[in-house]
Simulated scan of single mutants.
Amino acid sequence: MIGTRATACLTAALTLAAATACSTASGTAADDCPVAAQPAGGVPLPEGDLPGWKQIFTDDFDRCELGDSWGTYSGQPGGNPLGWWDESMVGVDGSVLELRSVRTDSGWVSGGVSNYPVTQTYGRWEIRMRADVSDDISYHMLLWPQSDQWPPEIDFAESVDGFRDEMSAFLHWRTSDGRDKHGVSTWGNFSDWHTVGVEWGPGIVRFLLDGEVWAEAHSDEMVPDVPMWLGMQTEGGSCERRVDWGLAPCAEESDLRADEVSVEIDWVAVYAPDFEVLEQMYYDGEFAPTESAIQFTDR
């Protein structure tokens, strides 16, 4: 697999002042949009700091418009000629952010959003999400460089698996003679709600699933050290790309070939590093390789 390069409409999103170039999706009228009393994903939005991490941004999408903390994607995904992004595929209904994908006569049209106003070097991100089963649609939760110069890229939750039984994480980095990448996978029912996330610090990236570290990289080469922001996106064309990747082709007739597919996001939480606390945690051994986690350096 390859990480997804989220280039369309993102150059204009590098600063908040340029946000008008990536317009936000409009919601329904307030009278038609009751705010949910309970979290759709069954787990409430976390509030407050964590050891070593200061909470700087949260969003539980308890309204009916996207808001100015987000920008929508438009145009063709970088590296994927089979998909197309349109702001109409992004919606907020008083409970969740929905990234829709619809099959049209000219191909798949999908949704994606960027949290570009919340850009930082190092931090912790968590997302409560679920994805409809689909052979045709992939999802990608990632950190993208503010400079728009790729790589690096941190993909902490993505899937091209139609049953949503498999979820992958990728790192993309620049080498002395070019570019390199590496990915690992975990298994579960990702058509149901889970909390996916990533912790990123100097020389370390830890991938999180429901609060537990499932994979990590301890590497100065693999781990970026430039400002990055969160992107959440869906893309069409997975069936066609499976052939390029040497995977089994999709069946023509299948319950996994629906014409409309959604990825739902209940909430997002972002944290900045408290380096003084993290340094003490490091010396206390709390960032030593996790015994149960997949190590990116074991290639």
Rank of each mutant, 00 (worst) to 15 (best):
W200K: 07
L50W: 01
M129V: 06
N115S: 05
E286H: 03
P81I: 12
E65P: 00
L278K: 03
M167G: 05
S159E: 09
I127T: 15
Q233W: 02
L143I: 06
A157K: 01
A293H: 08
V160D: 13
S114E: 04
G83P: 02
F207W: 15
T7C: 00
A36C: 14
W70I: 03
G71A: 03
C239G: 07
P81M: 07
L66S: 03
V226Q: 11
T15P: 00
L97D: 05
C22H: 05
C9T: 08
D266F: 04
E221Y: 02
R164T: 07
G79E: 13
R124L: 07
D136F: 04
M141H: 13
S191L: 00
D32E: 14
P81W: 06
S185I: 07
Q76I: 12
R63N: 08
V196A: 13
V243K: 10
G183K: 09
S101K: 04
D180R: 14
F170T: 11
E98C: 02
S191A: 03
F163G: 03
G236Q: 10
A18E: 13
V270Q: 07
E216L: 10
S114I: 06
Y73S: 04
P77M: 06
G188H: 11
A21Y: 03
A30N: 03
S168L: 11
Y271V: 04
F170P: 00
G231H: 05
V184P: 00
S191Q: 12
D132R: 05
F57Q: 12
E87S: 09
L66R: 00
L208H: 12
G3Y: 11
E260A: 00
G236C: 10
I2Y: 07
E153F: 00
W229P: 01
E264A: 09
D59H: 07
Q295W: 06
L16G: 05
L256R: 10
D266I: 07
S110D: 14
D161T: 15
C64P: 04
I294V: 15
H172A: 09
D192I: 00
F296H: 10
M167P: 03
V109L: 03
L66D: 06
H194G: 02
P44D: 15
D93C: 08
A269L: 02
D49H: 01
A8H: 03
T15K: 04
A19W: 06
G201Y: 04
V277R: 11
S23F: 01
E98P: 00
V160G: 13
A272T: 07
G237V: 09
F61V: 06
A18W: 05
Q233T: 11
F190E: 09
D62L: 05
R103C: 02
S219E: 11
R206I: 04
I265T: 14
P117E: 08
S185D: 15
G67V: 04
D266G: 10
I154V: 14
G188F: 03
D59R: 08
P151W: 09
P249D: 14
A37P: 00
W173F: 14
A40K: 06
Y283E: 13
V270H: 01
T15G: 01
E240C: 01
Y271I: 03
L143C: 02
L278A: 02
S95G: 12
